[in-house]
């Protein structure tokens, strides 16, 4: 299997995640876009792990750690969104301008 298509697809997922973060207005949708970015990083890690045939399998181990940290991140992120929604009655991030100078 050739490496380049997988790398280009991972780059595409990364840039789609960036697009989602910049364009989406709902905070939960921004978190979804962050998941896309993490997923593209996972694809890169797994592909290089297989390509280099690493003896210690550090690519796979890092991917498992990234998945764990992403689960924790989603939990905390949604808790924050929930608290913001409770205080401001909206989940649109362009209305959270309390800390804007």
């Amino acid at each position: 299997m050739i490496v380049q298509p997988v790398l280009v697809v991972a780059a595409a997922l990364f840039s789609l995640g960036i697009y989602g973060i910049l364009v989406r207005r709902n905070a939960v949708m921004v978190l979804l876009s962050i998941e896309l970015i993490l997923n593209s990083v996972n694809i890169n890690f797994i592909m290089f792990d297989t390509m280099l045939a690493d003896v210690l399998m550090q690519g796979q181990i890092f991917t498992i750690f990234i998945i764990t940290i992403a689960a924790a991140e989603v939990g905390i992120g949604l808790a924050i969104v929930l608290m913001l929604f409770r205080n401001r009655q909206t989940a649109n991030i362009n209305e959270f301008d309390l800390m804007k100078w």
Partner: peptide
């Protein structure tokens, strides 16, 4: 797990 959390988040924040 994560998608279920997201669906909860979508429903609770009344999107």
């Amino acid at each position: 797990a994560v998608i279920v959390l997201f669906l909860f988040g979508i429903m609770i924040t009344r999107a």
